[in-house]
Amino acid sequence: MKENVLTVSVAPFWHSGAGIARNSYISMAVLLPVAAVGVMHYRVGALAVLGLCIGSCMLAEALMQKIIGRPVTLGDGSAALTGMLLALLLPAGVPWWLVVVGSFSAIIVGKQIYGGIGSHPLNATLVGWVMIRISWGVQMDADVALANLPNLSGLSALAALRGGYVDAVPLKDVWMGNLIGPIGSASLLVLIGGLVLLALRVIKWEVSLGFLGGVLLGCVLFGSNMLPEGSDASVNPLVMLFSGNVMLGAFFLAPDTTSSPSQPIAMWIYGFAAGLLAMLIRVYGNYYDGGVVFGILLVSLASPLLDKIRPKARGRE
């Protein structure tokens, strides 16, 4: 009689079904409508950036993993998601080489040199964005980048606010991304997608809510300082909440699994601090368009420290 060959492993023999690939693909799926609105507005310009970003992120990941001699893990979708998020943060019409540089920076400098997913101290997408924003600021300016495309004029939401043109940013247009800005400006759709992620427990909801809380507090405390001095108009907090990538930050960037803390209290503090910092930079900083990005990046640095705030384990009380 032939002997049976059984599968053996340690317990548990059940699994909840969670997975890296599942999380990546769900995140990308809920971002599809956002990308679609971007493509509607900017046509081929947006499509090219999206395709180029996702493609070069995946290429960078595969190349780097080959060079290091690790298994190629394109299948988990994390490189593709990084690419998609980066594209949504970029204005349509940026030169192609900038997109490629940004993507390679994101994957290689932001992620792979630390050992890949799970090891990078900062959010890879944001690292990529910051590299090109600081190095090629002019090309990254939505108002400039989009000037190459026909039939578009006006100011991005944040530029308009800084200029004091409060009436130029109606909430409806901010929601649907009708104003010029990055490809992923349809912030209402981002919010809906984010809520789906919360419901499916894909992201750390404490971080998201903390982030939104921090942004709101910032708005209330010093939001109107964003307007030019002497202006007596006031900024609608909802406009602040839905403009300048706050929603992307709250649901897709700040809760990045690797660069955010995991302890409950630490997650709240992290989210809240990132939100508040984002507002500070937006209102007072030079890179006001990158308030959300810089806010999250800076607070990520404190993430391992924040994780030290933890309850005493049972038995040690």
Binding site: H15, I20, I117, G118, S262, R314
Partner: peptide, 26 residues
């Protein structure tokens, strides 16, 4: 049959949330 994988922890924090003994499992 569900199989485990030899990959890095991505720090999602699910294990921390679920641990009845409040251990920083990650």
């Amino acid at each position: 049959v569900f199989c485990y994988e030899d990959v890095a922890c991505i720090g999602c924090g699910q294990c921390v949330k679920v641990c009845p003994m409040k251990i920083p499992v990650n």
